[in-house]
Design a protein around this nucleic acid. Structure first.
Length: 116
DNA sequence: CATATGACGTGGG
DNA sequence: CCCCACGCCATAT
């Protein structure tokens, strides 16, 4: 079926976040059917091998980057976000997060119905 | 087996 | 804004 292992559902949820937007770890977990498992999302992303995965669109619930400020990964994430038009100031974004579950459903609809 | 550790979240003081 | 407690759970030590 479309949903397989928890990890797979998490990755699917992350991929559903459109460019220029972001979502929280908890949001992704809920969308993946794993309420309260934000840490699991972090783990999955940490071990993800898919280079095309938009991991940079996942932030803490308050819009801050999860890595420490001196962590090179933080700079990388900020760069990617800025590149998509999401300004990162002091390690945090101001733009409102999106409803991942909604985006996820939209993605499924698009996959089923196609562009037209 | 006991503790500590993470790319976390929420609630309260 | 700060700090703390607790919930969560796979891995690591």
């Amino acid at each position: 079926m479309v949903d397989d292992s928890p990890a797979r559902r998490i990755l699917a949820a992350v991929r559903a976040i459109p460019p220029g937007r972001w979502a929280g770890y908890g949001d992704v977990a809920r969308t993946a059917g794993l309420p309260g498992r934000a840490r699991m999302v972090a783990r999955v992303l940490a071990h993800a091998s898919d280079a095309s995965l938009p991991w940079h669109r996942v932030l803490r619930s308050d819009g801050r980057i999860a890595f420490a400020g001196d962590d090179p990964r933080a700079a990388e994430q900020a760069a990617r976000l800025c590149r998509e038009g999401v300004p990162v100031v002091e390690g945090r974004v101001r733009t409102p997060r999106i409803d991942v579950a909604r985006a996820s459903r939209a993605a499924l609809d698009a996959a089923l119905w196609g562009p037209g």
